[in-house]
Design a protein around this nucleic acid. Structure first.
Lengths: 252, 252
DNA sequence: GTTGACCTTGACGTAACGGAAGCTTCTACC
DNA sequence: GGTAGAAGCTTCCGTTACGTCAAGGTCAAC
């Protein structure tokens, strides 16, 4: 069974151009080339492509990917090097971001009552959602069922990763708020978009519903308390950002 | 007073090529160009260059820098946008790095007794160094004096930033250790180099001295206790990394 | 036979310069 | 005043990982 370049592209999610590029640089050669010049790929190439895409996702340069895959025993060392690079770059960005934040408050002149941000690693640690089960089942029976099914498929570790990521997203929002980033900034709206997609796992809210959801984060004391654990006023900021998102990208 | 391109380059720390590039794209035009085609810069250009370099340091694209400087009232908005971009990218790298770390442990097969890493924002908060003053003065009188002078010039905020950065550096080291990054990896050695430069503020250790300093972090309970607050075994890893650095880059 | 989808190579563009070639000009010294 | 060496100039290629045409050949279906 041979696949053409476009078929491989569809299957793997990259473009045909990318596959040609990988051919050009010798990273992924087709199994064979027809007399007409067409590239044909077989299963081994697909497997190799999978590995390539994983490493690319991790931010590795194509040349490094090639040497990492071709000298298999060295894969772990390559990943370790890559990990170290990522950590260094992550902290560099953190430093630069803090400098920018300081510069902003200095330029602003007025000391804007510096919002204090808490940064737990997992805001939901030990959080017992079952205490709200009855209420949730009553208010949103269908969505409750859907979410129960989704949660059932998640391992303990998946769950914790998800909680950590949700915590990190809330902290990011708080940072946007503290820096005075307007809620319609692309970065904020991207963040809200992630949130919306998360919600969509069990429910696809329209414009009104999503706006109301945001308001609930402010009005329901239990939600608001959680947001306030990260930073004061965060629930309001989140609600505003959600309203802007709903206005701009959702329909009635 | 006019400055030639090389003079400006030396004064500002960029290359002449960079200045020509900025001229080409219209970011920084010389004050005037001689009949011989030479570029001559005046003070206003130097000030503009300073602003450019600050914003460039903050990771802003040259095109964005141009519009930010040329429309001064929008400077803060530009910085806010930039801040949001930085925060998003920082967290993306953090996620990718965690994925890489997980992949490493999975590939390794053996569960390597997962080192637990604590991540305080400031390990030295409320740390009272004066309790060690007497001992330090006795053991290293000259260095003690030098450090006292340096510390005297630092504001409270400088001090806290420095402590936070030192904490972040220790956490990075712990992450390297946990991922099994060898101590002679460039990223680790870069980290040690920063540490060495920090030490050099009041004392320039040679190969032996720096190695001994590393050993002291392990042998002196008080130092070791601090490292252990971040992760178990960190003092040992730090000492090994310092020994490797001394071996490779310091002379007797 | 034609249409439209799919394939090819080749070339240019991206961001922010680094580096080199080939030539002109300045500055200092003898 | 001649010459060496430093410094300046323009122009072009290379870097990363492709996106985006453009011009043309091939294939499958009707």
């Amino acid at each position: 069974m041979s696949w053409s370049i476009a078929q491989v592209a569809r299957m793997s999610g990259v473009t045909a151009r990318t596959l040609r590029h990988y051919d050009d640089i010798g990273l992924l050669k087709p199994d064979h080339v027809g007399l007409n010049g067409y590239r044909y790929y077989e299963e081994p190439q697909l497997l190799r492509l999978q590995q390539i895409l994983v490493l690319r996702e991790l931010g590795m340069a194509l040349a490094d990917i090639a040497s990492a895959i071709d000298s298999e025993p060295d894969m772990v060392s390559a990943l370790r090097r890559q990990y170290a690079r990522l950590v260094v770059e992550r902290d560099r960005l953190a430093r630069v971001a803090e400098t920018v934040a300081r510069t902003i408050t200095e330029l602003e002149g007025r000391p804007p009552m510096a919002v204090r941000i808490n940064r737990p690693e997992n805001l939901f640690e030990g959080f017992d959602s079952s205490q709200y089960d009855d209420e949730a089942r009553e208010r949103w029976p269908e969505e409750f069922e859907r979410s129960r099914q989704v949660l059932a498929t998640m391992s303990e570790q998946d769950m914790e990763r998800w909680q950590r990521e949700a915590t990190a997203a809330m902290i990011r929002m708080a940072e946007f708020m503290a820096a005075g980033v307007p809620v319609d900034d692309p970065a904020v709206q991207d963040e809200v978009h992630q949130h919306w997609q998360g919600i969509c796992t069990w429910w696809t809210p329209n414009r009104t519903a999503y706006t109301c959801l945001g308001r609930m984060y402010v009005d329901d004391e239990r939600f608001k308390a959680n947001y306030d654990k990260i930073a004061e006023g965060l629930a309001e900021y989140q609600a505003e950002a959600m309203a802007a998102y709903a206005e701009a990208r959702l329909s009635d």
